[in-house]
Design a protein around this nucleic acid. Structure first.
Length: 258
DNA sequence: ATGTCGTGGACGCCACGA
């Protein structure tokens, strides 16, 4: 069994204590992190190493930042990807590594902000470029998955009220189309098993959104055919959104029988 | 739903991003 997780931690520094507790309790083999908000140099390598994890980090400080933790090997680390768009410079939004039997990518897709914002075009271009880069990586023939904060709700059921999203990002046809292009390169959006309440992964900090159930499923694990066929369980760890100083995202955990 | 977070600048608050 190989347990993979993805979690937008909204600062690995602010979340370090909770992250370490969660790693100990959950025992994932591979963890894709987003919004680490630390430079590659400042990543807390020693702290995760104490729990048995190697880490590949890609970050430049205040914004964005991604990482992969692995306790089953960490090789062929790649930061960013060929043809990755920037704004205008490339931002630390993607890192890939070979972790034992699988090739894993951790991605933090641009938010998009507003439908008429230049960041929205950036988001679409970034997803299109990601699809091309994944196609090239898939050619290597290893079991492949890309996990992270896609900032896209794949279906209307992935937000608490589609009516509240008229004119908003995350649900537009253009974004879903860009996500579909990624999926069309050979990936399946692994559906977390039904839990109490709706299967969301993100709740805004503001306005008590978590307690009101006003969430979205925007954190996804996309698995290639080999890995999708090997899934034995998938769930959202909603409990990780509770308590003091949580991230605004919950982790998604997927088990594979390889 | 937007009364919250997180970061960093040059602070003891503001700007910015989500």
């Amino acid at each position: 069994m190989l347990r993979l997780a993805t979690w937008n931690v909204n600062s690995v520094g602010a979340r370090l204590e909770r992250l370490l507790e969660w790693l100990t309790a959950t025992e994932p083999d591979v963890v894709c992190l987003q919004e680490t908000k630390v430079s590659q140099e400042a990543f807390p390598y020693a702290e995760v190493e104490a729990l048995g994890y190697e880490a590949a980090a890609h970050g430049d400080g205040r914004w964005n930042g991604v990482a992969i933790l692995s306790r089953v090997g960490l090789d062929e680390v790649r930061r960013g990807f060929d043809g990755e768009p920037g704004f205008p410079e490339a931002e630390p939004r993607a890192v890939a590594a070979t972790c034992g039997p699988i090739r894993a990518w951790s991605v933090y897709v641009p938010n998009g902000r507003e439908l008429d914002d230049p960041h929205f075009a950036y988001k679409l271009a970034w997803l299109a470029a990601l699809a091309r880069a994944l196609g090239a990586d898939a050619a290597a023939g290893r079991p492949l998955c890309v996990s992270g904060d896609f900032n896209v709700a794949p279906t209307d059921e992935d937000v608490w009220d589609i009516g509240a999203f008229a004119g908003s990002t995350h649900v537009s046809a253009a974004e879903r189309g860009a996500l579909a292009t990624v999926l069309a390169t050979g990936f399946t959006d692994i559906a977390p098993r039904a839990l109490k309440g709706a299967p969301y992964t993100y709740w805004d900090y503001r306005g008590g959104a978590f307690h009101k159930g006003l969430g979205m499923r925007i954190d996804l694990v996309l698995a290639d055919a080999t890995l999708a066929g090997a899934v034995t369980d998938a769930y959202i760890d909603r409990d990780a959104r509770k308590g003091s100083k949580p991230s605004d995202h919950a982790p998604v955990v997927v088990d594979f029988d390889l």
